[in-house]
Amino acid sequence: MHILIAHESPIPVTAYGGTERVIWDLARGLVARGHRVTFLVPDGSTCPFAAVQPIRPGVPWREQVGRDVDIAHFQFKPDEDLDVPLLVTEHGNCQPPSPFPLNTVFVSADHARRHGAECFVHNGLDWSSYAPVDWDRPRSGYHFLGKGEWRLKNLRGAIRVAERAGERIEVLGGVRFNVRRGLRFTLYRRARFHGMVGGQRKFDVLNGSRGLIFPVRWNEPFGMAVIESLYFGCPVFATPYGALPEIVGEEHGVLSADARVLADAVRANRFDPRACHARAVDVFNAERMTESYLALYDRVLAGESLNARPPQLTDLDRNLPWIS
């Protein structure tokens, strides 16, 4: 099967790049199973195991999808009909009212439900491309992983939890003094800011952390930061919104919208790091994700619709409750 994967950001991943990492691992899994993959991505992208076709801005998508493609897998909603079978994966919370094609896949059960849809595939990663977990390294402090300038990620709440618990927090994805989205300055001296980082530097921080503090104030579509943290043996202390209850079980952390509850859980942290690691490796892996998408490709090629009606976001719910 020849599968075209279209995405509007370049590959390979240069820093965080959640979606880019997912489609990279998906393509590698498809090629390993004997399929042919072509990436339709911005100019300058490269890939050693799949063909790369640069996006031509302003040219209709139907003219950029090769005639020998069996199925096109877009990571965004194309604004026109294509001449080949189409599957769309929606990775975020698109503003309403914007209906999606019938063959749209979401990244969690909650994500699908909030779009009035049924079809979803949990993201998975090729954990062999990550640094090994250092089980012998002493762990201290906690971390936050996300775009700290975005208020819905609630970096301020994460720092508040760490402060209540009397713990150090390493902030991956934020800065102490932020003027981009309103003047914000973090006074808590036990918060250390690393900016947007990836690769070995991020792995080093996660390998030395006792857990992820992640009190988001929206319905998280999936939670890449969550599964990456679990992989490194870090339990998760987060709000119970969006996909997070699907990812974080009782053995892997605590979910609450109250900073005091999360701070108490942080202080009493007795979670088994190896159980957290196993959760990521056994459930949220690239092999399972690849097999799930292949089954959906077959359904689409057989003429089946993946959802009963065009999905459309019905429940955005920003600024969800948070007690600090």
Rank of each mutant, 00 (worst) to 15 (best):
A225Q: 11
G223L: 00
F222T: 12
P240L: 05
F214V: 00
L230M: 14
Y231H: 11
A225R: 05
W218H: 15
A238Y: 07
T239S: 15
V226A: 14
F214Y: 15
T239R: 07
I213Y: 01
A225Y: 06
G233L: 12
F214N: 02
W218I: 02
E220M: 08
P215T: 07
E228T: 06
F232V: 13
R217A: 11
E228F: 04
G211Q: 07
E220T: 06
P221Q: 06
E220D: 13
G233C: 14
F214T: 00
E220V: 03
P215W: 03
G211V: 10
N219F: 09
W218C: 14
S229V: 07
P240V: 04
T239E: 10
L212M: 05
G223F: 00
S229W: 05
P221D: 04
G211R: 03
T239M: 10
Y231R: 02
L230Q: 12
L230Y: 11
I227R: 02
P240T: 07
F237D: 08
P235W: 06
I213L: 04
V236P: 07
P235I: 09
V236E: 05
G233Y: 09
M224W: 01
M224H: 07
G211A: 14
Y241I: 04
F237C: 13
T239A: 11
E228D: 11
Y241L: 06
Y231E: 03
F237S: 10
P240K: 10
F237W: 12
Y231M: 03
P215H: 06
P221Y: 01
G223A: 05
W218G: 04
P215I: 04
G211D: 09
A238P: 13
S229F: 07
E220P: 03
I213V: 12
F214A: 04
G223D: 02
P240W: 07
L212G: 02
P221N: 06
L212Y: 02
G211C: 13
Y241V: 03
T239H: 09
V236S: 09
T239L: 09
I227P: 00
C234E: 03
L230C: 13
E228Y: 05
P221F: 01
G223Q: 02
E220R: 08
F232N: 08
C234I: 05
F214E: 00
F237V: 11
P240M: 09
G233D: 11
A225N: 15
S229Q: 08
L230I: 15
F237N: 09
L230S: 13
L212W: 02
F214K: 00
V216N: 06
Y241T: 04
G233V: 12
P240R: 09
F232Q: 07
Y231T: 03
S229A: 15
R217G: 08
Y231P: 02
A238T: 12
C234T: 04
V216R: 02
R217N: 10
T239G: 10
W218Y: 15
F222K: 13
A225S: 15
N219T: 01
P215E: 06
G223E: 01
F222L: 14
L230N: 11
F222Q: 13
P215S: 09
P235E: 09
G223Y: 00
R217P: 06
P240S: 12
F232M: 14
V226L: 13
P215F: 03
F214I: 01
P215M: 06
I227E: 00
A225H: 09
G223W: 00
V236L: 13
F232I: 12
M224R: 07
E220G: 08
E220W: 05
G233A: 14
S229D: 10
Y231C: 03
P221A: 08
V226Y: 07
P235N: 10
